[in-house]
Nucleic acid binder design. Structure first.
Lengths: 336, 336
DNA sequence: TTGTAGGCGTTATCAT
DNA sequence: ATGATAACGCCTACAA
């Protein structure tokens, strides 16, 4: 049996409320009893029951983090863990704990969010998503529950933090153009995911600004995060008009692409320059080192938590957006 | 204000206990009232308060996962997220939620574990650790709180799941020896971490079995997980007696080492063969593809949860160990 | 300064 | 089949 406030009270010959006051560090208590109670608490190895406290306070100091398909693949990607690290670090030193929810299907997500919101166990939610049509988001909006989305959504009534993916696409494409490229393939476009759409649009904008016609044949679709860059690249290599540059929507895609290029007897960057996005640790170690875009996932996480706190603490409704700057990291894979 | 069981009761003109019975699907209730209550619950969008329920049930359906230094670097490593995925997937479909605790210091870890155990919020704990002297472990043992360690510890009174690191070291070394190597460096030994010690011992055993003298000069120490394989390898390359093979305790270390080797104008595997451990996704994409050991982190996670459940559900004390088999994945980096 | 009593939302026991 | 009541462990007016 766990030791409770009443046990302490009995032993100290005081009332439970007195003990409670000691715990709360209430000033209206004599130094003597305070010290005595404190001593006994230590003796009996007392620890307050968080559940009971939550029930009366209506506050749990827990936030929920909902990740899609974690069990399967998402967490495999360095992007997610870094994000999580950011959230956790911020949450932790503000005394919050993180309830991690991995959901594999949209239905699961809906149910999970329902539980987390109505169940009273969670004070706020951070939702990782990048899909356009997320019913969960609409649901949360309807309930007026405090939540923040990481990844841009089209629903205007949400608080979100994200990178400027349009800018990322734009900067990458500009970088290639400045290096003299005209035929630049875009690898890993995934309709239904705003991320890749924004990036593609940025890419188009850059082309347009330099009067380079946009060629849809150079856009290769794929699932958002996947390791099939190798196959995608082979699709490109068989075409008669070979691009001189490749922008991949993810570093893993880029690595696969490079392998395909090498196998075809071509060199990177001399024959085809390649860049990725996300700047995974190994981008720097790869051969050749891969030009990429640092997404600052950790900051995305910390910012998201910060925003959530603001929302939770405030009575006035507001819809906030935060853009975490991304950073082009140029390495040998795109340098002549 | 959130809608409670009493609100439902009033509206349905029944007592709270009746509503509670409906929720619990108690058979001793008339179909009529049951249906009515159910309907009103839906109408009013009722959801049970998990906190209140936990308080009376003394059960939360939450387990804690404590990771060291997550905020900083651990989570960066593909190993951890995969582990987490395994735990989460298992937990989820058994109706458990995961409370994620990232701790950066030993003190923090101790405090966190105290809160999680005595606070009553958590029914069991999975502790990720690989350090020998973990006071937290001793503490948990002392309290008789259900917990499972991922990573072997020396304390005999713990339940743990791990790979057979001795075997991993042994198999890797044997593989090198079979390829004709005699001078095999061991990169990334880290005293204080059982993992690397076990691996080193396995390596020694293999040497011994083949009558190859053990040369301490070939063992290069480093912090457990770090990205300084490049520098470590340079230390080796300046030595007069150059090894023909390198076993790195982690793939990232191996990647760095390969870069150093290439920079020195040598080839992998022709001049020096290199293998890593953990089989990160990019091992396969690297140039050359890296021989590594698949750790099956996901299984480590699922098994850990399974074990935890067993412990939580059983009154009889027992100390269980589970070994998740690792698997040597031979690629070009060690093949002539 | 300290104690008493009521309540947070639920479940479980005992009546009816 | 249903209702009243106590309890889970803690907090907080209100009293003393």
């Amino acid at each position: 049996m766990r030791v409770t406030i009443t046990d302490i009270a009995k032993r100290a010959k005081v009332s439970p409320s007195t003990v409670s006051r000691v715990i709360a560090d209430n000033p209206r208590i004599s130094a003597a009893t305070k010290e005595k109670v404190l001593r006994i608490m230590k003796e009996m190895n007392y620890h307050p029951n968080i559940i009971a406290r939550s029930l009366v306070n209506q506050t749990t100091k827990i936030i929920g983090v909902v990740m899609p398909g974690m069990a399967e693949q998402s967490l495999q990607h360095p992007f997610y863990p870094e994000l999580l690290g950011g959230i956790a670090s911020m949450a932790n030193n503000q005394g919050y704990k993180i309830l991690l929810a991995n959901v594999s299907t949209v239905d699961e997500e809906r149910e999970m969010v329902k539980e987390l919101t109505f169940g009273g166990i969670t004070e706020g939610i951070i939702l990782l998503t990048s899909r356009d049509d997320n019913p969960t988001v609409d649901q949360l909006v309807k309930n007026g529950f405090p939540f923040v989305v990481i990844g841009r959504t089209e629903n205007p009534y949400v608080n979100w933090v994200d990178n400027d993916n349009f800018l990322i696409g734009y900067q990458l494409a500009t970088h290639f153009i400045e290096q003299g490229h005209q035929e630049i393939a875009f690898l890993g476009y995934s309709p239904g995911y705003m991320v890749t759409r924004d990036r593609l649009n940025g890419y188009k904008k850059a082309l347009q600004e330099h009067n380079i016609p946009f060629d849809p044949a150079l856009v290769i679709e794929s699932k958002f995060i996947s390791d099939n860059g190798y196959d995608l690249m082979k699709q490109i290599l068989v075409k008669e008009k070979r691009p001189t540059g490749v922008i991949a929507c993810d570093d893993l895609l880029a690595f696969g692409a490079i392998r395909a290029i090498h196998e075809a007897g071509l060199r990177v960057p001399e024959d085809i320059a390649v860049a990725g996005i996300n700047n995974v640790p190994l981008a720097d170690y790869y051969n050749p080192p891969l030009t990429s875009v640092k997404i600052n996932a950790f900051s995305l996480g910390t910012k998201a938590f910060e925003m959530l706190r603001t929302i939770m603490g405030s009575e006035i409704q507001s819809y906030n957006r935060a853009i975490i700057p991304a950073e082009l990291v140029v390495r040998s894979s795109t340098q002549r």
